[in-house]
Nucleic acid binder design. Structure first.
Lengths: 217, 217
DNA sequence: AATTATTTTTAGATTTGTCTAAATTAAGAA
DNA sequence: TTCTTAATTTAGACAAATCTAAAAATAATT
């Protein structure tokens, strides 16, 4: 069994692993709001427990055991987010902090029952995939909106940026999960994208388009 | 804001306050699965934060501030229990441990929405009352134990006879304030009542039952 | 009232997770 | 390659919550 803090480290390392391999000490320190020295200490501890593979001055990667633990936390986090939005009417930019706490509740029965209660959701309110109890993600071909060409159509299935300002911006534009969009034009000058959303024309910056994930169909 | 541990101490002190005033160090130690020395340390800390009133060698009582905090934790604990039983089909004996964890989640919005989602329940699955967001418990009518029927459950909340012989008798039987009882059988012949008190069977005369006041729940 | 037993507190140590400041290693620039 | 800068680690300290063992206070008993 891991402590609350250990779980947080594993989760952060898991997320950072998708960006860099191995994961650097400073990157962890920044994300976890702590100092590099503290990270080194914790990494040593996780390494002794064989949850991470650690090479001095290089960084860490999760071991199989560590990965299983991390994915389970991610699963719990995302299921709780679905609960908060679907059942308690939270807005999608209000759920993160609470889910950060709820993800550490220790009870397999609880999480399996919650999964069932929510009708086995495959994605969380941000469109991020929810692993099943064996740690498997449902495969999904997600494409960045910025990669689409003129005339392409699809459904908004996720975002790759979870900050409140960004989500509020999307909310305001009406670019929410499940909405269908069509690309009218990609402006060559600045990469901004002209969209059709529910018969309305709409222009979004390339920066925004890069963080919207689309299922082409 | 209080730590997880501080919250647990406040909650335990709150519960023990219903039985003895002030609350003894050893009583806390037993309930919280720790040593008396640790309790003394924590009590000093809570006292400095003005959450409890502490007199050396005597014991502690909650201050108003401490009581508000404690009642809020009790509220959260009991709401989560309702959620687990009503929505996730937990059995009433499976909920306690999980609720012990959930009660420490910090979010007023969460708990108000949960309350609403559960349709503002007044009692938890064990029949214990749930305080509202202002800390008020729904008033419950006191009933003479002699009026209860088979299967009825409740908490001893008072007596209508204050003579020493009577109170000594109750003391001896273990029928003290705050104890939960269940009626197994009301004997038709003489009106005596067969009770279940802390897993033990017990028979009391109709005369005694008439002077014990119960909060049904 | 004196003695014994129980309860509570103190003193000092331990564990977990953190910190600062200094030392070390790796990476980049001249 | 050598010097400089940036990243990382070590060493030593600290706060929170706990513990053991010993001392002090209270309660119970003779």
């Amino acid at each position: 069994m891991q402590s609350y803090t250990e779980e947080n480290y594993l989760k952060i390392i898991y997320h950072l692993s998708e960006i860099s391999h191995p994961v650097q000490t400073n990157a962890i320190a920044e994300r976890i709001q702590t100092k590099a020295a503290s990270v080194t200490d914790m990494i040593k501890k996780l390494s002794e427990k064989e949850l991470v593979h650690y090479v001095k001055y290089q960084g860490v990667t999760l071991t199989e055991k560590g990965k299983v633990t991390a994915i389970n936390i991610v699963r719990k986090h995302r299921l709780w987010e679905v609960f908060l939005v679907d059942k308690l009417n939270f807005k999608w930019d209000e759920v993160h902090e609470v889910a950060e706490e709820l993800e550490h509740i220790q009870s397999n029965l609880l999480i399996e029952r919650l999964d069932e209660f929510l009708d086995f959701p495959k994605v969380d309110p941000h469109g991020d995939p929810i692993p099943d109890k064996h740690g498997n993600f449902a495969e999904m071909a997600l494409v960045k909106l910025s990669k689409l060409k003129n005339g392409d159509k699809g459904t908004i299935t996720g975002v790759s940026e979870h900050s409140s300002p960004f989500l509020k911006h999307l909310e305001k534009l009406g670019l929410t999960l499940g909405k269908r969009i069509a690309v009218v034009d990609v402006v060559e000058f600045d990469g901004s994208v002209e969209l059709l959303l529910e018969q309305e024309k709409l222009n979004i910056s390339r920066e925004v388009a890069k963080h919207i994930l689309i299922t082409k169909n």
